[in-house]
């Protein structure tokens, strides 16, 4: 992995691209999300036989015993505590029109994180929790939050917290557009991009547990269950949107706009293949 990164970083991009072209294999298309999810989970449990399925949600901490101990210690005084409190307040605070977040969500927004994103058949689009939160604000005459941090991180932290332990339960309705969104998300996940010519899978499928700079790469299985996260490097909290855009920049790809269709579809795919793994957010990272 290190060697790959170094090689790519020297910027001999075209040569790598050409190699990639020669290697490309064209398997017949067949869309079968349940089979995908099964193969995805099997890949990681085979690769890391010592890690329990539900522990993959701890990202880098699931990959290394020393780190796991650090994580246990961190959880005693979690650095996301402040955001969690802020989120609880924001969630309860009435909008100017007297309504609140509870009025926008099933079960008043408590314990529902595991059901996002979902496919909205009326609009033919994937709706992530972040999008649903901003739609709630806007439909009640409030200003939307920035997608990447601060209030959005706080409210999603609170909503994840009330859902801890509930397994991801992402559904793909019998609608060709839903299947297309799922497939588009899968494609985004495996597509190489940026000058370094990496896909999400290069780092989070082929190299989880490896070190990249000072960080340990998280496995793609359960990679969204702990969101949003506190990161020391950010000096604060970040949402799924923040993580996706920063992972794009790392490979020298210009990030898309938060919650553009590709990112929504990507989140749909990644959440679906982690069905059955428990929500553990908010998370704390080194």
């Amino acid at each position: 992995m290190r060697a790959t990164i170094r090689l790519a970083a020297t910027g001999v991009t075209l040569a790598m691209l050409l190699l990639g072209a020669a290697r490309a294999s064209h398997a017949a298309d067949s869309l079968n999300p349940p089979a995908d999810a099964k193969a995805f989970q099997k890949f990681f449990t085979d690769k890391f036989p010592k890690v329990k399925l539900e522990d993959f949600v701890n990202g880098p901490y699931s990959m290394d015993e020393g780190l796991y101990k650090q994580w246990k210690e961190k959880e005693e005084f979690p650095p996301y505590e402040f955001a969690l409190d802020a989120g609880r307040d924001l969630f309860a605070k009435p909008f100017k029109n007297g309504k609140s977040f509870a009025d926008c969500f099933p079960n008043k927004g408590i314990g529902i994180r595991q059901n996002y994103p979902y496919f909205d058949e009326k609009r033919g689009k994937v709706i992530t929790l972040e999008v649903a939160i901003n739609e709630c604000l806007e439909s009640n005459g409030e200003k939307p939050f920035s997608y990447t941090k601060d209030d959005m991180a706080s409210v999603t932290a609170y909503m994840a917290f009330t859902s801890r332990g509930k397994p991801f339960d992402i559904k793909i309705p019998n609608d060709p557009r839903a299947l297309a969104a799922y497939e588009n998300g899968k494609k985004y996940f495996y597509t190489r991009r940026g000058q370094l010519n990496f896909s999400c899978a290069t780092c989070h499928v082929q190299s989880p547990g490896d070190h990249i700079r000072a960080e340990v790469l998280a496995p793609a299985l359960g990679i969204l269950n702990a969101m949003p996260i506190y990161r020391s490097e950010w000096g604060g909290m970040g949402t799924i949107s923040r993580r996706f855009t920063s992972c794009n920049s790392q490979v020298r790809a210009v990030p898309l706009k938060p919650q553009d269709d590709e990112y929504r579809d990507l989140e749909y795919y990644l959440s679906y293949v982690s069905n059955g793994l428990p929500i553990s957010g908010p998370g704390a990272r080194p």
């Binding site: 991009t13 075209l14 691209l17 290697r23 490309a24 294999s25 000058q195 082929q206």
Partner: peptide
């Protein structure tokens, strides 16, 4: 090069998929 990459990845992404 980025255009070339996109064109090449149109199908090549499947090579990396977990099956």
């Amino acid at each position: 090069a980025s255009i070339f990459q996109s064109t090449e990845q149109k199908d090549a992404w499947k090579a990396m998929e977990i099956k």
